[in-house]
Design a protein around this nucleic acid. Structure first.
Lengths: 214, 214
DNA sequence: GTCTATACGGCGATAGAC
DNA sequence: GTCTATCGCCGTATAGAC
């Protein structure tokens, strides 16, 4: 894992305050803004104290990832448990959540370049994916699809990936077609998992060829 | 734009050699590995000389982005021109190209955190998107789709976005369902744009609800 | 267990010498 | 055009105070 040096206890209140500052810095200015000095300034402590709790920056990032991932898994499991009849919507909304998506995007970008963090992100991603896939598979088994339907893992890929893509493009100031993409996907979700108050919708396909081929 | 200082000529051979090194560094170790010292060492010159051509690191990145984007646009336009009957495939394969995708992913991540680079990336993205959208729209007009079909801009979003997502996940060591996603999408492409030698395929839908709703 | 002070080398950036 | 000197910020390591 990370550094084998003596560090502050996991239960320390200061530790949590520092991690709060890390998340805020990452959301506001990106991971590059996370420096010992910046985190310390935000919490009103000395840089050395931050380093006492997190001997290297990777330790700091890994701790932030784990705390956030734990909270996300709890939130996801709660939502799937309290809304067992609409797993697709739950996964979709979970992936679209503002704070979570922004942070996980940042962590992913970070993992792309930091070896020690890559495995941490990958482990988290796989755990979340397993919970989501089980839910989507359950729905698939219960309302058997026709031959043209996507297999659960492909559907899940789109369900979680499309919001990520949108976030990614928004990050560089491009937002073309985003509204249309969301609308198209939600139309599909509405037909797959009708809203309680909504009127019934006819079976809907999201992506078909136009026929009329030579 | 960037810095208004005196810099080396655009036609300089040294300049191109330096940009080659930048691309290589970005692909091999990520944008964080691009430092004056690293670029200089790779080209066998002094760091000061690199800084002479590119006064700030942002200047260096912007120059690399522009050179690469110009080449990509040429390549895309060529492919669309020489294969006018399969724009979807051309866009799909273009987005899946190894070197291009890796570099543009890296540039996008960079743009997420550097103000001056963000607008550069956005401008490039919009230019490429326009060329691609025109091609997809043309195909849409020619083989009129049925009501269930996706509008061109949504289709284009998936066409270019899915390879990006796959690259992103590969970057952190996750590759679950990627093969299935590619297969599902290519099955759709095969039916929309039959391969020359391939047998005819029946109309195929990529994403439908399973019917059987309450 | 918590926290501070200090030191080191690498970095981007600037000014200016040849 | 080419290169050096210098500045301030960074991560990191360590020694030690409470």
């Amino acid at each position: 894992m990370a550094s084998p040096r003596r560090v502050g206890a996991e239960t320390s209140k200061t530790r949590h305050v520092l991690l709060d500052g890390v998340e805020q810095l990452m959301r506001d200015e990106g991971y590059a803004a996370v420096t010992y000095r910046a985190v310390a300034a935000k919490a009103g402590v000395t840089p050395g104290l931050v380093q006492y709790y997190f001997p290297t920056l990777d330790d700091l990032f890994v701790a932030a990832i784990r705390r956030r991932a734990g909270r996300n898994l709890d939130r996801l499991a709660d939502a799937l448990r309290t809304q067992p009849d609409r797993p697709l919507r739950v996964v979709w909304e979970f992936s679209r959540d503002e704070v979570t998506a922004a942070l996980m995007t940042e962590f992913t970008a970070l993992g792309n370049h930091r070896k020690t963090i890559r495995s941490e992100i990958a482990a988290i991603a796989k755990r979340i994916r397993k919970v989501q896939l089980d839910a989507v598979k359950k729905r698939w088994r219960e309302s058997r699809a026709d031959d043209g339907d996507l297999p659960p893992d492909v559907l899940l890929f789109l369900l979680t990936g499309i919001p990520k893509l949108i976030k990614l493009e928004e990050g560089i100031g491009v937002s073309t077609a985003h509204a249309e993409v969301v609308e198209a996907f939600e139309r599909y979700l509405d037909s797959a998992e009708p809203r309680p108050g909504g009127r019934k919708r006819k079976r809907k396909s999201l992506l078909t060829t136009g026929g009329r081929r030579a």
